[in-house]
């Protein structure tokens, strides 16, 4: 039996925005978790909290092992204090936070969900997830601008199923000793030049991200809910060089993936499980670094041919 993220809020605008976002995500969890959101004055930070990590305007801090984690959207927009073993994230936001829905959802609440989902064995990784027509799972890992979304959109048009081009969670695989990836469903987001080169028209204007978005179904393929990767590709987009791939050793792959799964370093209580999932992932997969060239627009099959 799977569970969704339960939203608890008395604020109608929060209810509308967040429930739609969660509904679209289609995330299926092994145990229930709750996002409890109030709008009002922010509570104080737990005493002794020390800054650990920052992502945009959101800072994560903790007073140490076993102590609650504080996730703060600054300055003074929202705050979540999450106990180590709690599966309910208590979030308080200022009213003005609702004027910035993209930042509220994709940055602040996404980070809250990232730590909330850790409590049920789901560990975030920044990557794209696909399934080939031959049922081979592919994980594309890299920073923004590395070519993940463009490659995903191109392969989608060649019959690959797509889970996500950006946000995913590792969890214990259905096969013992393996890692599966569960995607967080949202629109694939492409820059206008990539969308144009691929030949896509229409799409939703993702103004805050300066991109154009399509659900995978709009690209003529289907969404995949869970993938066991057999291939890991770390792409780098190139305007000049042709598409090429180079194999990586498992250790190299693991070290290169870790920056895309940085929360492994936080919360000692969950670090071992997180690191174990990353280790299984590189052990079960063949890894490559790839240069993704402009030639991929004309011949998307080059990449799977090179990875074969």
């Amino acid at each position: 039996m799977s569970h969704e993220i339960t939203l608890r809020t008395a604020h109608p605008a929060v209810e509308q925005l967040v429930s739609e976002w969660l509904h679209v995500s289609r995330i299926a969890l092994p145990r229930p978790v709750t996002l409890d959101i109030d709008v009002g004055p922010l509570p104080p930070l737990p005493s002794g909290s020390k800054f650990n990590f920052r992502q945009g305007n959101v800072a994560v801090s903790s007073a140490g092992p076993g102590m609650p984690l504080a996730i703060e959207w600054g300055p003074g927009m929202g705050r979540c204090v999450l106990d180590t073993s709690s599966t309910t994230a208590k979030v308080i936001m200022e009213e003005r936070a609702l004027e910035r829905p993209n930042e509220m959802l994709r940055l602040f609440l996404m980070l809250v969900c990232t730590f909330l989902l850790r409590r049920v064995g789901f560990h975030h990784i920044h990557g794209a997830v696909l399934l080939s027509p031959q049922n081979k799972g592919l994980l594309l890992v890299g920073v923004s601008g590395s070519g993940k979304s463009t490659t995903t959109a191109l392969l989608a048009r060649r019959g690959w199923q797509v889970g996500t081009d950006d946000i995913a969670f590792m969890c214990a695989g259905e096969q013992p000793g393996t890692t599966d990836i569960v995607p967080w469903r949202e629109r694939l987001a492409l820059h206008a030049d990539s969308a144009s080169a691929i030949g896509h028209h229409g799409g939703a204007d993702l103004e805050a991200r300066q991109k154009i978005g399509w659900f995978v179904e709009d690209l003529g393929t289907t969404w995949v809910q869970r993938v066991r990767p057999e291939l890991i590709v770390l792409p780098t987009a190139s305007a000049d060089a042709p598409t090429s791939v180079r194999p990586l050793r498992a250790q190299q792959s693991l070290a290169r993936i870790m920056p895309s799964s940085p929360w492994v370093s936080l919360e000692a209580e969950y670090a071992d499980e997180h690191l174990d999932l990353l280790t299984r992932l590189v052990k079960q997969s063949r890894s490559f670094e790839a240069t993704v060239g402009r030639d991929l627009f004309d011949r998307p099959d080059i990449l799977p041919e090179l990875l074969a």
Binding site: N52, R249, Q251, L254, A255, S265, L266, A271, T279, K283
Partner: peptide, 19 residues
């Protein structure tokens, strides 16, 4: 934290967020 893959290792230091 230490993990081994194919006879090599990756070491993670939780305090300094380095590996």
């Amino acid at each position: 934290r230490l993990t081994a893959v194919d006879g090599e290792g990756v070491v993670l230091h939780l305090g300094s967020l380095t590996y």
